[in-house]
Amino acid sequence: MLTKRIIACLDMDGGRVVKGVRFKNLRDAGDPAECATAHARNGADEIVLLDITATSGNRRTLLDAVFRTARSLFAPFTVGGGIRQLEDAAAVFDAGADKIAINSAAVRDPALIGRIAGRFGSQAVVVAIDARKVDGGFEVFVAGGRVATGRNAIQWAREAAACGAGEILLTSMDRDGTQSGFDCQLVRTVAEAVSIPVIASGGAGSARDFVEVFREGRADAALAASIFHFGIENIAELKRELHDAGIPVRWPC
């Protein structure tokens, strides 16, 4: 049986994993390669490394971190942040990533999804969507959530899938960093609108939140960053609780 995935996200700044609330009050949480292997050993089904600064001067630092992480990680590995064109994606794949996540660049140029998928396969392209609840639906935001696009998140998810995306990484900006639970309404609406897997993100705080996003939200995978650092929540323990609640997970792992 296909299991629901628990994905650990590492936010990286200047070559180090950092943790803060909404990218503020950043604290050092360690070396990306060490964090990634530790999470994988602890039961994470997948690792996402997100370059949260993603300035051009940092590309070498990012690629070095990707290379070092990939060398000792034998689980699916996604890298996002600052990928603006096919060449950026190719460099990240060359360094050892299995998938790339694109956000603002895909909104600006949806054909980029197809260009990367055409060369590396749809399974390698994750389109990340940051959405916020507005009157009458959910709106897409870009540039780290700072810029409203006026676009409807459900329509954009459908278009991204049609362009060749392999998965949607859907973040609720209303819930992100709050640990108050995933936005199951948003997740379910998107998950039922597209035929590709949807990864829910934003709001994870407890095992119950994960049960709800899989059951009510129909998510295929759920991602969290903050609760997996500093041993605040043990992934193996989380998966045991999900298993006990009847959610199919890779357990024991």
Binding site: G166, I196, P197
Partner: peptide, 29 residues
């Protein structure tokens, strides 16, 4: 949903050399 993405369990049959020592219902990606 397609693609089939994620960890799924293996129903292993006896006698495989490649899967020797792999536990029944092991998960693979």
């Amino acid at each position: 949903k397609s693609p089939h993405v994620g960890w799924n369990s293996l129903a292993i049959q006896e006698g495989s050399r490649l899967l020797q020592g792999i536990a029944q219902d092991s998960f693979v990606y």
